[in-house]
Nucleic acid binder design. Structure first.
Ligand SMILES: [Mn+2]
Ligand SMILES: [Mn+2]
Ligand SMILES: [Zn+2]
Ligand SMILES: [Zn+2]
Lengths: 158, 158
DNA sequence: CTTCTAGTGCAACATTGTAGCATCTGGCGT
DNA sequence: ACGCCAGATGCTACAATGTTGCACTAGAAG
């Protein structure tokens, strides 16, 4: 830890810290929100509630599932995080980086790992029936990740 | 009902009936499978397990949720039906018509209705990391359907 | 009609997420 | 530095969706 002890905006025009982001949204900086947002910032891929729960448990933070759900809800409401649908019924969460930039994701149907496909935009431009309005699009590619390998067929799991 | 009483392949080269489809897959033609597949054939949009359950209940078929889940699993395994992910955690099911032809879907975030966007192909052609293999893509547009209207904001529900 | 296995019904369970409510605490005013 | 109190937490109970195990039924083959 090489930061000064007195909490300050650190460098004037650097990317805001998790702490600053939370405060800027008018919310209290609690250990749960801080740990969750930092975990999301530090992760290369979107994290499930369960994965986050394990990480917080390792840090002896967040003794309750519900608190984590609520922290995540709050981050999403405030636009600091984003929810991704995956193929199973569990949400994944990632930090919102560049304003919009909605990209596609890859979901490994074996291990459940989700990967961001930053290059692949999820832009539809579809012709919908009158009266329909689109708010966002979700593009998810399904298959097997490198670790799980394409050679194993579904039956071979376990 | 204008079919002959004796069950026959009806017209020689017409689209196979639900009964024929099921039999052709080597499965037993049970009331549940038959009713489900016919319901899917007759529906303009993908149906949730719950919607199907209501329809079967109205016909006094399928006295058990599990049986319906298993019938649907079977239809999907045999390639007669397809599972669609929606934004909520409930699967929708639709009949598989033209072999592949994987199209996008629209999900109304208000009423949960799912609409097929036959024109919009869900084809990715993305550059994935080495070792990753894509099996299929799911493209879901989210918003409000015509019935629910775009004017109502989220808070106004109920 | 009998037989045999695939399918069904029921109960119990698993996973993921919500709602209510009492208690605690972060940040503010003093 | 201290006390306050709305906002955050922890706990319990609940809801929605789907799965597993097992005894019983029934589709269809002979
Ligand atoms: Mn992403
Ligand atoms: Mn469709
Ligand atoms: Zn994997
Ligand atoms: Zn709607």
């Amino acid at each position: 830890m090489n930061e000064p002890h007195i909490h300050s905006p650190a460098s004037p025009n650097a990317r805001p810290t998790a702490r600053e982001q939370i405060a800027a949204c008018g919310g209290r900086v609690t250990r749960t929100r801080l740990a969750v947002l930092e975990a999301l910032h530090g992760s290369a891929h979107p994290l499930s509630h369960d994965e986050l729960g394990d990480m917080l448990a390792a840090e002896a933070i967040a003794h309750d599932r519900v608190t984590l759900y609520r922290a995540l809800d709050w981050l999403v409401e405030r636009g600091l995080a984003r929810r991704i649908a995956g193929g199973d019924r569990a949400w994944r969460f990632e930090v919102v980086r560049g304003a919009a930039h909605r990209h596609a994701h890859f979901h490994c149907d074996r291990c459940g790992q989700v990967l961001c496909l930053e290059q692949l935009e999820a832009a539809p431009a579809a012709a919908l029936p009158t009266g329909y309005s689109v708010e966002r699009a979700e593009l998810v590619l399904h298959g097997h990740c490198a670790a799980c390998g394409p050679e194993h067929s579904a039956a071979e799991i376990r």
